[in-house]
């Protein structure tokens, strides 16, 4: 694994009035706020379960087609709103609201505990996962991802983002991230981070899950970055990975869907 020395990343304010002038003259709307390195992003997390279930190796082609034809059109509904609070030193990613709700709000449900904390300065992480019938508190040092930078750009929530890819060997997922060139913070949604810019869109395994930014607010978030009290069985990166690996393996072997009880 290559070393990404995050501490060596320098975030500088763009002061060149000339450059800004040039940009404005080109018609680009990049305001001065783009230089900020703290704020909050609201994401929409969409889980395409017929796609996920199509990955289940024990289902026949017929069963997969049946599922897609029956339910494939039902997946246009809104996803779960998530929020990422960040500055250049740390980030917290969790649910936007404290409960799950139907669109009209008449029915609500509990959301499994889920909070991802990254501390880039101390290279530490804290994660709270309710999964597999238990609540876990993962505390360890930051892992590294081998990001491959791609020659593709697109706009996400008003920011031009560049594409990067990596691979999750535990869940066997292809990960595609789109990071903002204008927000020089290595934070991102779910468990992903470590790019030269803030990740505004995440595509897990070719569209099985899409986490896309809907709103980016650059503001002071020192208050919001305070960690809430979290309880759970203490666990380390390695055990966490092993546990997931075992669960996926056992479930597939027993011909059960491993994915609904873990974060995909």
């Amino acid at each position: 694994m290559k070393n990404i020395k995050l501490s060596t990343v320098r975030y500088q304010l763009r002061q060149s009035g000339f450059a800004i002038l040039a940009l404005i003259s080109l018609g680009f709307s990049i305001s001065a706020k783009a230089q900020q390195t703290e704020g909050m992003v609201t994401y929409e997390y969409k889980y395409y379960w017929t796609k996920v279930n199509s990955r289940l190796t024990f289902l026949s082609k017929e069963e997969k087609d049946r599922m897609k034809l029956t339910w494939g059109n039902e997946e246009d509904g809104p996803g779960t709103k998530m929020k990422l609070t960040f500055n250049d030193k740390q980030s917290i990613y969790t649910y936007f609201s404290d409960q799950g709700q139907t669109e009209d709000g008449r029915y609500s449900w509990r959301q499994s505990d889920y909070l991802i904390h990254r501390n880039f300065e101390q290279e530490k992480l804290i994660e709270n996962h309710e999964m597999l019938g238990k609540t876990y508190l993962l505390e360890d040092s930051l892992m590294t991802y081998n990001w491959r930078i791609q020659n593709q750009i697109k706009d996400v929530a008003g920011y031009v983002c560049m594409k990067a890819e990596t691979f999750d060997p535990i869940k066997n997922h292809k990960i595609t991230a789109w990071f903002a060139q204008d927000i020089p913070v290595p934070a991102g949604p779910e468990r992903y981070f470590g790019l030269p810019g803030l990740i505004l869109e995440l595509d897990i395994n070719d569209g099985d899950v899409i986490v896309a930014a809907q709103k980016v607010e650059l503001k002071n978030v020192d208050k919001e970055l305070a960690l809430p009290k979290m309880k759970g069985k203490k666990i380390k990166n390695n055990d966490y990975d092993q546990m997931l690996k075992k669960h996926i393996f056992d479930s597939i072997k027993a011909q059960r869907n491993p994915y609904w009880s873990i974060r995909y």
């Binding site: 002061q15 040039a22 491959r148 470590g194």
Partner: peptide
Amino acid sequence: DTSSTPLGSATVMLLQRKDSSLVNFTRTND
């Protein structure tokens, strides 16, 4: 840029040539 105006805050990335893996990155100054 092509008219020699310096581009500040550009993202500079060092990648492995074989697979574009990100090795290091920085930003340009003003």
